[in-house]
Protein backbone atom coordinates (compact mmCIF):
# COMPACT_ATOMS: atom_id res chain seq x y z
CA UNK A 1 0.00 0.00 0.00
CA UNK A 2 3.05 2.24 0.24
CA UNK A 3 2.88 3.06 -3.48
CA UNK A 4 -0.82 3.83 -3.38
CA UNK A 5 -0.39 6.24 -0.47
CA UNK A 6 2.33 7.97 -2.40
CA UNK A 7 0.10 8.25 -5.44
CA UNK A 8 -2.74 9.66 -3.33
CA UNK A 9 -0.42 12.26 -1.82
CA UNK A 10 0.81 13.20 -5.29
CA UNK A 11 -2.69 13.57 -6.71
CA UNK A 12 -3.90 15.55 -3.70
CA UNK A 13 -0.96 17.92 -4.07
CA UNK A 14 -1.55 18.19 -7.82
CA UNK A 15 -5.16 19.26 -7.31
CA UNK A 16 -4.10 21.78 -4.68
CA UNK A 17 -1.50 23.26 -7.04
CA UNK A 18 -4.08 23.39 -9.84
CA UNK A 19 -6.85 25.10 -7.86
CA UNK A 20 -5.61 28.72 -7.93
CA UNK A 21 -5.00 28.34 -11.67
CA UNK A 22 -8.47 26.89 -12.21
CA UNK A 23 -10.18 29.69 -10.31
CA UNK A 24 -8.31 32.49 -12.04
CA UNK A 25 -8.48 30.94 -15.51
CA UNK A 26 -12.22 30.21 -15.38
CA UNK A 27 -12.85 33.80 -14.34
CA UNK A 28 -10.68 35.15 -17.12
CA UNK A 29 -12.40 32.82 -19.56
CA UNK A 30 -15.76 34.44 -18.85
CA UNK A 31 -14.30 37.93 -19.36
CA UNK A 32 -12.68 36.84 -22.63
CA UNK A 33 -15.88 35.15 -23.80
CA UNK A 34 -17.57 38.54 -23.49
CA UNK A 35 -14.78 40.04 -25.61
CA UNK A 36 -12.54 41.60 -22.95
CA UNK A 37 -8.90 40.59 -22.59
CA UNK A 38 -7.77 41.38 -19.04
CA UNK A 39 -4.02 40.89 -18.66
CA UNK A 40 -4.25 42.02 -15.04
CA UNK A 41 -4.96 38.54 -13.63
CA UNK A 42 -1.60 38.39 -11.87
CA UNK A 43 -2.25 41.75 -10.19
CA UNK A 44 -5.79 40.85 -9.17
CA UNK A 45 -4.58 37.54 -7.72
CA UNK A 46 -1.88 39.27 -5.68
CA UNK A 47 -4.27 41.84 -4.27
CA UNK A 48 -6.74 39.05 -3.49
CA UNK A 49 -4.00 37.05 -1.78
CA UNK A 50 -2.82 39.92 0.42
CA UNK A 51 -6.36 41.10 1.20
CA UNK A 52 -7.36 37.60 2.27
CA UNK A 53 -4.27 37.14 4.39
CA UNK A 54 -4.57 40.54 6.09
CA UNK A 55 -8.23 39.86 6.89
CA UNK A 56 -7.43 36.40 8.23
CA UNK A 57 -4.74 37.82 10.51
CA UNK A 58 -6.88 40.74 11.68
CA UNK A 59 -10.15 38.89 12.27
CA UNK A 60 -9.24 35.22 12.38
CA UNK A 61 -12.19 34.48 10.13
CA UNK A 62 -11.32 32.60 6.96
CA UNK A 63 -14.81 33.01 5.53
CA UNK A 64 -14.54 36.77 5.90
CA UNK A 65 -11.05 36.59 4.39
CA UNK A 66 -12.42 34.87 1.30
CA UNK A 67 -15.16 37.45 0.99
CA UNK A 68 -12.66 40.30 1.23
CA UNK A 69 -10.43 38.64 -1.39
CA UNK A 70 -13.40 38.36 -3.69
CA UNK A 71 -14.24 42.04 -3.22
CA UNK A 72 -10.60 43.09 -3.59
CA UNK A 73 -10.35 41.23 -6.91
CA UNK A 74 -13.58 42.86 -8.05
CA UNK A 75 -12.36 46.32 -7.07
CA UNK A 76 -9.25 45.83 -9.20
CA UNK A 77 -11.42 44.55 -12.04
CA UNK A 78 -13.69 47.58 -11.63
CA UNK A 79 -10.72 49.90 -12.25
CA UNK A 80 -9.87 47.90 -15.35
CA UNK A 81 -13.48 47.91 -16.51
CA UNK A 82 -13.89 51.64 -15.97
CA UNK A 83 -10.80 52.38 -18.05
CA UNK A 84 -11.26 49.91 -20.87
CA UNK A 85 -15.05 49.96 -21.16
CA UNK A 86 -15.87 53.47 -19.98
CA UNK A 87 -12.86 55.33 -21.34
CA UNK A 88 -12.00 52.94 -24.17
CA UNK A 89 -8.37 52.60 -23.17
CA UNK A 90 -6.15 49.96 -24.76
CA UNK A 91 -6.95 46.64 -23.07
CA UNK A 92 -3.43 45.25 -23.29
CA UNK A 93 -1.84 48.36 -21.76
CA UNK A 94 -4.51 48.67 -19.08
CA UNK A 95 -4.18 45.02 -18.13
CA UNK A 96 -0.42 45.42 -17.79
CA UNK A 97 -0.99 48.51 -15.65
CA UNK A 98 -3.35 46.52 -13.44
CA UNK A 99 -0.68 43.89 -12.87
CA UNK A 100 1.98 46.51 -12.14
CA UNK A 101 -0.32 48.26 -9.64
CA UNK A 102 -1.29 44.93 -8.11
CA UNK A 103 2.33 43.93 -7.56
CA UNK A 104 3.16 47.29 -5.94
CA UNK A 105 -0.02 47.59 -3.92
CA UNK A 106 0.13 44.06 -2.54
CA UNK A 107 3.77 44.52 -1.53
CA UNK A 108 2.80 47.79 0.14
CA UNK A 109 -0.15 46.34 2.06
CA UNK A 110 1.66 43.10 2.83
CA UNK A 111 4.82 44.58 4.35
CA UNK A 112 3.46 44.19 7.92
CA UNK A 113 2.25 40.65 7.33
CA UNK A 114 5.47 38.96 6.24
CA UNK A 115 6.37 36.03 8.45
CA UNK A 116 3.10 35.93 10.42
CA UNK A 117 1.77 32.37 10.64
CA UNK A 118 -1.95 31.61 10.36
CA UNK A 119 -3.88 28.36 10.47
CA UNK A 120 -5.00 28.06 6.89
CA UNK A 121 -7.96 26.50 5.21
CA UNK A 122 -8.09 22.82 6.25
CA UNK A 123 -9.56 19.81 4.45
CA UNK A 124 -13.24 18.98 4.80
CA UNK A 125 -14.05 15.29 4.44
CA UNK A 126 -17.25 14.62 2.58
CA UNK A 127 -19.03 11.87 4.50
CA UNK A 128 -19.76 8.72 2.56
CA UNK A 129 -17.71 9.57 -0.51
CA UNK A 130 -14.54 10.05 1.47
CA UNK A 131 -14.33 6.31 2.24
CA UNK A 132 -14.06 5.34 -1.44
CA UNK A 133 -10.68 3.86 -2.30
CA UNK A 134 -8.23 6.20 -4.09
CA UNK A 135 -10.94 8.59 -5.36
CA UNK A 136 -12.14 9.30 -1.81
CA UNK A 137 -8.97 10.67 -0.30
CA UNK A 138 -7.99 12.42 -3.55
CA UNK A 139 -11.25 14.16 -4.40
CA UNK A 140 -13.35 14.21 -1.26
CA UNK A 141 -10.88 15.15 1.44
CA UNK A 142 -9.91 18.54 0.03
CA UNK A 143 -10.47 22.03 1.35
CA UNK A 144 -13.68 23.93 0.54
CA UNK A 145 -12.09 26.08 -2.17
CA UNK A 146 -11.14 22.98 -4.18
CA UNK A 147 -14.77 21.92 -4.16
CA UNK A 148 -15.75 25.49 -5.01
CA UNK A 149 -13.36 25.57 -7.96
CA UNK A 150 -14.87 22.39 -9.39
CA UNK A 151 -18.42 23.57 -8.81
CA UNK A 152 -17.72 26.98 -10.31
CA UNK A 153 -16.11 25.46 -13.40
CA UNK A 154 -19.17 23.30 -13.93
CA UNK A 155 -21.47 26.25 -13.27
CA UNK A 156 -19.64 28.49 -15.73
CA UNK A 157 -19.73 25.79 -18.37
CA UNK A 158 -23.46 25.34 -17.81
CA UNK A 159 -24.26 29.05 -17.83
CA UNK A 160 -22.18 29.75 -20.95
CA UNK A 161 -23.51 26.93 -23.06
CA UNK A 162 -26.93 26.05 -21.63
CA UNK A 163 -28.54 29.33 -20.62
CA UNK A 164 -29.80 32.45 -22.31
CA UNK A 165 -27.41 34.59 -20.28
CA UNK A 166 -24.51 32.55 -21.59
CA UNK A 167 -25.74 32.93 -25.14
CA UNK A 168 -25.87 36.71 -24.71
CA UNK A 169 -22.35 36.78 -23.25
CA UNK A 170 -21.00 34.75 -26.16
CA UNK A 171 -22.91 36.84 -28.68
CA UNK A 172 -21.37 40.01 -27.29
CA UNK A 173 -17.93 38.44 -27.49
CA UNK A 174 -18.46 37.34 -31.06
CA UNK A 175 -20.09 40.47 -32.49
CA UNK A 176 -20.74 43.39 -30.20
CA UNK A 177 -22.35 45.52 -32.87
CA UNK A 178 -24.94 42.88 -33.65
CA UNK A 179 -25.62 42.31 -29.96
CA UNK A 180 -25.98 46.04 -29.46
CA UNK A 181 -28.39 46.26 -32.38
CA UNK A 182 -30.48 43.57 -30.72
CA UNK A 183 -30.70 45.80 -27.66
CA UNK A 184 -28.30 44.08 -25.29
CA UNK A 185 -26.36 46.43 -23.00
CA UNK A 186 -22.91 45.45 -24.26
CA UNK A 187 -20.83 47.50 -21.82
CA UNK A 188 -22.87 46.54 -18.74
CA UNK A 189 -22.65 42.83 -19.52
CA UNK A 190 -18.93 43.12 -20.28
CA UNK A 191 -18.38 44.91 -16.99
CA UNK A 192 -20.22 42.14 -15.13
CA UNK A 193 -18.06 39.52 -16.84
CA UNK A 194 -14.88 41.46 -16.00
CA UNK A 195 -16.02 41.76 -12.38
CA UNK A 196 -16.65 38.02 -12.27
CA UNK A 197 -13.13 37.50 -13.58
CA UNK A 198 -11.80 39.78 -10.85
CA UNK A 199 -13.70 37.93 -8.14
CA UNK A 200 -12.36 34.58 -9.34
CA UNK A 201 -8.79 35.89 -9.56
CA UNK A 202 -9.18 37.26 -6.04
CA UNK A 203 -10.31 33.83 -4.85
CA UNK A 204 -7.41 32.21 -6.67
CA UNK A 205 -5.02 34.53 -4.90
CA UNK A 206 -6.72 33.84 -1.58
CA UNK A 207 -6.24 30.12 -2.16
CA UNK A 208 -2.49 30.70 -2.31
CA UNK A 209 -2.23 32.76 0.87
CA UNK A 210 -4.86 30.86 2.92
CA UNK A 211 -4.60 27.25 1.81
CA UNK A 212 -1.71 26.38 -0.51
CA UNK A 213 0.99 28.07 1.57
CA UNK A 214 -0.77 29.85 4.46
CA UNK A 215 1.46 32.91 4.67
CA UNK A 216 2.20 36.12 2.80
CA UNK A 217 5.27 36.44 0.60
CA UNK A 218 5.83 39.33 -1.81
CA UNK A 219 4.82 38.40 -5.37
CA UNK A 220 3.77 34.97 -4.10
CA UNK A 221 1.69 34.22 -7.20
CA UNK A 222 4.97 33.76 -9.11
CA UNK A 223 3.42 34.12 -12.55
CA UNK A 224 0.33 31.98 -11.91
CA UNK A 225 -1.88 34.79 -13.21
CA UNK A 226 -0.02 34.67 -16.50
CA UNK A 227 -0.16 30.88 -16.61
CA UNK A 228 -3.93 31.19 -16.08
CA UNK A 229 -4.08 33.45 -19.14
CA UNK A 230 -2.16 30.88 -21.14
CA UNK A 231 -4.52 28.16 -19.89
CA UNK A 232 -7.49 29.97 -21.41
CA UNK A 233 -5.79 29.82 -24.81
CA UNK A 234 -4.72 26.22 -24.19
CA UNK A 235 -8.34 25.37 -23.39
CA UNK A 236 -9.49 27.05 -26.61
CA UNK A 237 -11.94 29.02 -24.43
CA UNK A 238 -13.74 25.92 -23.08
CA UNK A 239 -14.23 25.70 -19.28
CA UNK A 240 -13.84 21.92 -19.05
CA UNK A 241 -10.50 22.06 -20.77
CA UNK A 242 -9.36 24.82 -18.43
CA UNK A 243 -9.76 22.33 -15.62
CA UNK A 244 -7.82 19.71 -17.57
CA UNK A 245 -5.07 22.19 -18.36
CA UNK A 246 -4.86 23.40 -14.77
CA UNK A 247 -4.49 19.84 -13.49
CA UNK A 248 -1.80 19.19 -16.07
CA UNK A 249 0.11 22.23 -14.80
CA UNK A 250 -0.54 21.22 -11.22
CA UNK A 251 1.01 17.88 -12.12
CA UNK A 252 4.12 19.49 -13.65
CA UNK A 253 4.53 21.72 -10.60
CA UNK A 254 4.22 18.86 -8.14
CA UNK A 255 6.47 16.44 -10.03
CA UNK A 256 9.04 19.23 -10.18
CA UNK A 257 8.72 19.90 -6.44
CA UNK A 258 8.99 16.18 -5.64
CA UNK A 259 12.09 15.91 -7.81
CA UNK A 260 13.61 18.78 -5.81
CA UNK A 261 12.60 17.12 -2.54
CA UNK A 262 14.00 13.76 -3.62
CA UNK A 263 17.40 15.39 -4.05
CA UNK A 264 17.67 14.86 -7.78
CA UNK A 265 21.10 15.88 -9.02
CA UNK A 266 19.63 18.85 -10.93
CA UNK A 267 19.66 22.36 -9.51
CA UNK A 268 16.37 23.44 -7.96
CA UNK A 269 16.60 26.59 -10.07
CA UNK A 270 16.60 24.54 -13.25
CA UNK A 271 13.71 22.37 -12.06
CA UNK A 272 11.67 25.44 -11.10
CA UNK A 273 11.79 26.55 -14.74
CA UNK A 274 9.66 23.56 -15.75
CA UNK A 275 6.15 25.03 -15.24
CA UNK A 276 7.09 28.16 -17.22
CA UNK A 277 8.71 26.18 -20.02
CA UNK A 278 5.74 23.81 -20.05
CA UNK A 279 3.45 26.83 -20.49
CA UNK A 280 5.43 27.93 -23.54
CA UNK A 281 5.46 24.45 -25.06
CA UNK A 282 1.73 24.00 -24.55
CA UNK A 283 1.00 27.45 -25.95
CA UNK A 284 3.02 26.66 -29.08
CA UNK A 285 1.33 23.28 -29.57
CA UNK A 286 -2.14 24.82 -29.39
CA UNK A 287 -1.45 28.06 -31.24
CA UNK A 288 0.25 26.51 -34.25
CA UNK A 289 -3.17 25.43 -35.47
CA UNK A 290 -4.26 28.89 -36.58
CA UNK A 291 -7.64 27.76 -37.87
CA UNK A 292 -8.52 26.22 -34.53
CA UNK A 293 -7.61 29.38 -32.64
CA UNK A 294 -9.53 31.55 -35.08
CA UNK A 295 -12.55 29.27 -34.78
CA UNK A 296 -12.60 29.28 -31.00
CA UNK A 297 -11.35 32.71 -29.96
CA UNK A 298 -14.12 35.25 -29.41
CA UNK A 299 -14.01 37.46 -32.51
CA UNK A 300 -14.31 40.75 -30.64
CA UNK A 301 -11.64 39.98 -28.05
CA UNK A 302 -9.63 43.06 -27.17
CA UNK A 303 -11.65 45.36 -29.39
CA UNK A 304 -13.18 48.44 -27.78
CA UNK A 305 -16.90 49.02 -28.17
CA UNK A 306 -18.54 52.39 -28.63
CA UNK A 307 -22.23 52.60 -29.32
CA UNK A 308 -22.65 54.73 -32.42
CA UNK A 309 -26.32 55.40 -31.90
Amino acid sequence: MEGLDGLVALLVAMIRAATPLTLAAVGELVAEKSGVLNLGVEGMMLVGAVAAFATAVATGSLALALLVALLAGMTMALIFGTLTLGLMSNQVATGLALTIVGVGLSAFIGKDFIGIPISGLGPVHIPGLFELPLVGPVLFAQDPLVYASLALTAAVSWVLYRTRAGLVIRAIGENHDAAHALGYPVLVIRLLCVLFGGAMAGLGGAYLSLAYTPMWVESMTAGRGWIALALVVFATWKPGRVLLGAYLFGGVTIVQLHAQGAGLAVSSHILSMLPYLATIVVLVLISRDRARIRLNAPSCIGKPFKAVR
Partner: peptide, 24 residues
Protein backbone atom coordinates in the same frame (compact mmCIF):
# COMPACT_ATOMS: atom_id res chain seq x y z
CA UNK B 1 8.14 50.98 2.62
CA UNK B 2 9.82 51.20 -0.78
CA UNK B 3 6.84 49.47 -2.34
CA UNK B 4 5.35 52.98 -2.55
CA UNK B 5 7.45 53.26 -5.71
CA UNK B 6 5.51 50.49 -7.44
CA UNK B 7 2.19 51.99 -6.44
CA UNK B 8 3.18 55.39 -7.84
CA UNK B 9 4.45 53.87 -11.09
CA UNK B 10 1.27 51.90 -11.63
CA UNK B 11 -0.92 54.88 -10.77
CA UNK B 12 0.90 57.02 -13.32
CA UNK B 13 0.07 54.54 -16.08
CA UNK B 14 -3.56 54.32 -14.95
CA UNK B 15 -3.95 58.08 -14.99
CA UNK B 16 -2.28 58.27 -18.38
CA UNK B 17 -4.54 55.61 -19.90
CA UNK B 18 -7.58 57.29 -18.37
CA UNK B 19 -6.72 60.79 -19.55
CA UNK B 20 -5.80 59.51 -23.02
CA UNK B 21 -9.51 59.37 -23.71
CA UNK B 22 -9.22 63.13 -24.21
CA UNK B 23 -7.11 62.60 -27.33
CA UNK B 24 -10.07 61.28 -29.26
Amino acid sequence: PRAVTGVFQGLTLFFLLASDVLIH
